[in-house]
Every structure is written in C-alpha cells, then in structure tokens.
Nucleic acid binder design. Sequence first.
DNA 1: CTGCATCCTATAGGATACTG
DNA 2: CAGTATCCTATAGGATGCAG
Lengths: 125, 125
Amino acid sequence: MQQTKRNGTEACKSAMSSVKDALYVLNGKWKLPLIIALREGPRRFNEIQKELVDITPKVLSKELRELELNEFVVRKVYHTVPVTVIYELTPYSSSVSPIIEALKEWGEQHRERIVKHRKEEPVTA
Amino acid sequence: MQQTKRNGTEACKSAMSSVKDALYVLNGKWKLPLIIALREGPRRFNEIQKELVDITPKVLSKELRELELNEFVVRKVYHTVPVTVIYELTPYSSSVSPIIEALKEWGEQHRERIVKHRKEEPVTA
DNA sequence: CTGCATCCTATAGGATACTG
DNA sequence: CAGTATCCTATAGGATGCAG
C-alpha cells in the first residue's frame, strides 16, 4: 500500500481522532483548572468558587456535574445543618495529569516567549 | 508562612494560570487537529480542508490566521496561475508536541474505558 | 451554604453562495 | 484555487435573584 498522494496517513488520522475525543471531554475554560484546584484536596462548593476566582455558581455547578459524569469527581453530601457538600477527585482523575503537566510547561514557556518578544520590539506608537 | 486554611497553594495557582494561558491559545475544536494534519507536511488550503473533513472554509481560514499569529504556521504564497498557497508548520509549533502526545494517549485510553463500561452494563431499555 | 431559575450577551461554529 | 460575505444556530458563559 503506497502513499503516492499526500493523503493523511493512518497514524495521523488516528492521532487526530484521539485528540478530538480528549478535547471533547476536557473542553471549556474551567474543566482542567477545576481539576487542578481539587488536587489540593477535597473542597466545598464555595471554596472552589473562591479559588477559581471568576466562575459563577451556575457555571461551576454545570462543570462539576460534567466532571462527575466523566468520573473525575465524586460529590459527597453530609446531612449537617445546613447541608455540607464535598467534591473530591477520583483515582481516575489522575489519568489527566500528563495533560495538565504538558499544558503547564508549555503555558509557562509560551508566556516567557511572549514577554521576550515584547522587549525586543520598539514601543508601539 | 503557614498554610492553616485550605487556600490554594502558590504552586496550584501558578499551575492554574499557566494551564489557562495554554488553553487560551490552543482553544477551540480545530487548532490541535490542524497542527496534527500539518505535521504530515506542508499543505494547501483545500488539502487541509479535506483532511479535517468537517471544517468549512470560513472556519479554516480563521483558525489558520490565528495559528499564524501565534507563529505555529507560516503562509507561503506562490504567484502561479492560479495562485498557490502553502501552509507549513514553524519550528516553534513542535513545542506543542508533548501536549498532543498527552492528549492522544489519554483519548485512546479513555475511549477504551468507555467501551469497556458499556459492555459491563446490561442493555439499556 | 448549595445551588437552581431566569435572563442575557458574546462567541464558536456551520450552511450557502459568491469573488479575484 | 483560495478564500470572503452573509446569514444562521447552538453553546458558553455571565448577572442577578431566589429557594431548600
């Protein structure tokens, strides 16, 4: 089976669809930051909201539900008065650590790169 | 400096903001798949469109412009008739490879996990 | 405290048709 | 061939207020 035309190779197609799957599950602005926050330990709704700074309760609630569905997070309810709800990571959630590390490394380096570029340029206007 | 309350640690905050930076640049459905496609070699607009299957010219055009801005891609124009335009990856683009690899690995494993779960469950309704 | 209900805006992304 | 123009929908995400 020869590859005369410049079609995508099988390896490429496979990589593409796996990456798409991953992006589909981890999409959005908050999923990964949320997991990062919970890596510090189990947290209550309000605590999480404070750590993520700009997230509204509605969005946080939705994100937590989606993370629960994908089995990254478990929700534990304690029948105190008033009720206490604790969110904590599952063991499965640690499977995304390599992704988080890669993004973290890259984000740091990219930021440095941007800053350096700015310095090399004359002041604009 | 003691950590009595359950505030986010500095390490956590730093990780979170780096990851956010990365997500900001690599956001959307197509950026990473596009880079994966171009790893096979330089491509013309229409060739890329075919490989990404479902992308429309408008969206492809926009994504390519953004990748160019972030210096992942260069656009080369050849003044043939009709004009030929080639997109190719820059050396800098390879800095995202660890991210792509991590997502690819995880996407594969996650898919397997889902399939296995399905098998273990009785048929729904 | 832990969210949900409601309303709203902005953006992503798609369909279709068209131009140099 | 390599896009642009126009129009459209769906979704993300935010603001505010309220309920158990």
